[in-house]
């Protein structure tokens, strides 16, 4: 299988790695870059655990071929905190007990960030639909939705 040399800005750092052409960006990030925050829950785009931002758009990295990332700017959960300062979403997930096992949490945080980037004041329904691509089997979503609401309030300065 052909391997491609990929240069991308990953969590703010210019990063170079080699990946087989048919491999997913998710596997490349995990195996080649060593960022295991994004998880594979399904490999078919149905669970959202591998969500990352590529050029400011959220997507499931399991459905992206690694070479597609060449030249892109990628944000994973590892890059969400800013110099040791947690993102408000991370802080609200912690304070609101919005995680149980935690496997889906990285994907939820990225998807929620993507939502709040676009819509700083979403309704509960808008949050639920925006996060419908992220499966959580532990929480029943209740505390996740509340944590996103709270983070949105904080980020709006309310």
């Amino acid at each position: 299988m052909a391997r491609t040399h990929i240069t991308a800005v990953v969590n703010g750092d210019e990063t170079e790695f080699l990946a087989e052409d048919g491999t997913s960006l998710l596997n490349a990030l995990r195996d080649e870059v060593g960022l295991t925050g994004a998880k594979e829950g399904c490999g078919t785009g149905d669970c959202g655990s591998c969500s990352v931002m590529i050029d400011d758009k959220v997507t499931t990295s399991c459905l992206v071929f690694a070479p597609e990332a060449n030249g892109a700017t990628i944000l994973t959960v590892e890059g969400l905190a800013d110099s040791g300062q947690l993102h408000p979403l991370q802080q609200c997930f912690l304070e609101g007990a919005a995680l149980q096992c935690g496997i889906c949490t990285p994907g939820f945080l990225i998807a929620a960030k993507a939502l709040l980037d676009k819509n700083p004041d979403p309704t509960e329904t808008e949050i639920r639909y925006a996060l419908a691509g992220n499966l959580c089997r532990c929480t029943g979503y209740d505390k996740i939705i509340r944590a996103v609401q709270e983070a949105a309030r904080e980020m709006r300065g309310q």
Binding site: G45, G48, S51, V58, T59, T60, V64, A111, A130
Partner: peptide
């Protein structure tokens, strides 16, 4: 067509 994640693709 799918989630927000899918919609970007």
């Amino acid at each position: 067509i799918g989630s927000d994640q899918i919609q970007n693709r």
